[in-house]
Computed example of a mutant assay.
Amino acid sequence: MDAAILVKIPYLNGLDDQRSVEDISNVLDAHERRPIQHAPWSAGAKQPQVSFALAYGNDDIYLKYYVHENSLKAEYSNFNDPVFEDSCVEFFIAFDDDASYYNLEFNCIGTSRAQYGQYKTGRTFIPVNLLKTIRHQTFVKSNVVGDIQWELTLCIPKTIFKFHPALSLEQSKAKINLFKCGDGLPEPHFLCWNRIEAQQPEFHLSSFFKEITFSRQAS
């Protein structure tokens, strides 16, 4: 992937918080899927196949992950639990020129963990009452060991980004990275959308986020 190419996130007209997550999931199926395929710490081992579709509406970011992996783990069910130990997907975003960023992490049943800060340490947890407003849908297509396929659709309200109370997505810019991990799986893995250069697995490196822009809304 060419880091110089600006990624434009499409606006989904006609979708709002009255539409079901299933409706939004179906709409995202028709949009471009981007692979999360960089595995700089894999040492050549076979990795999960993962992709995502990303769009936005008036008040939400819409995100769907498509995952094909060998095993499935969903131990954590409480908000802000260490879901990265489970079968986990992650979305990191920094708005405009903010040096701090949000990390939103979800296990395969939609349990969420979210924080904000400039570095990996000293981060502030997003309150549970806000995390409860994230709508999600999980669909396990195949649950055969060695051939597990699951999907997670997320409707993330702008209010989740509580340190940006005046956030307007349309035509704004951000820097993001997306990940797939499973620290506590039989075969741990660490995949990233935009390549990271580090000696050991580390997602909290905002210098490797990729710039995006939220496209103009349809008139």
Rank of each mutant, 00 (worst) to 15 (best):
F125V: 13
K175N: 14
R19D: 15
E90F: 03
T153R: 02
S168M: 08
D2K: 13
I176P: 08
D59K: 08
R135N: 12
Q115A: 04
I156S: 00
P35A: 07
P48Q: 02
S100V: 09
R19N: 12
Q47T: 15
D23A: 03
I212H: 01
H204Q: 08
Q37V: 12
A218N: 09
R123T: 11
R113D: 08
Q217R: 10
P157C: 00
E197K: 03
T153Y: 10
E170D: 12
L152I: 14
A94K: 07
P188Y: 08
A3M: 13
L167Y: 12
I148E: 12
C181S: 06
I5M: 06
S206W: 07
I61A: 00
Q115C: 06
S51M: 03
V128G: 00
S207Q: 10
Y119N: 13
P186D: 13
R195D: 06
R34S: 10
L152V: 15
C108M: 06
P188R: 00
G14Q: 06
P157S: 01
A74S: 08
E105F: 03
V50P: 05
I93N: 03
K175G: 03
C181T: 07
S20F: 14
P10G: 00
E22N: 14
G44S: 02
I212F: 04
D2N: 15
V21L: 06
L72R: 07
A43N: 12
V67L: 01
S172I: 04
P188I: 04
H164Y: 15
V7K: 11
E75I: 05
K210Q: 13
S172L: 00
Q200T: 13
R216L: 04
A94Y: 13
H68D: 09
G184W: 11
H189N: 12
K210Y: 06
D2A: 07
F125E: 15
F92R: 11
E211C: 01
C155I: 09
E197I: 09
F208G: 01
N80A: 02
N129D: 15
V83P: 04
F95H: 13
Y62A: 00
D96Y: 15
I176L: 06
I160T: 14
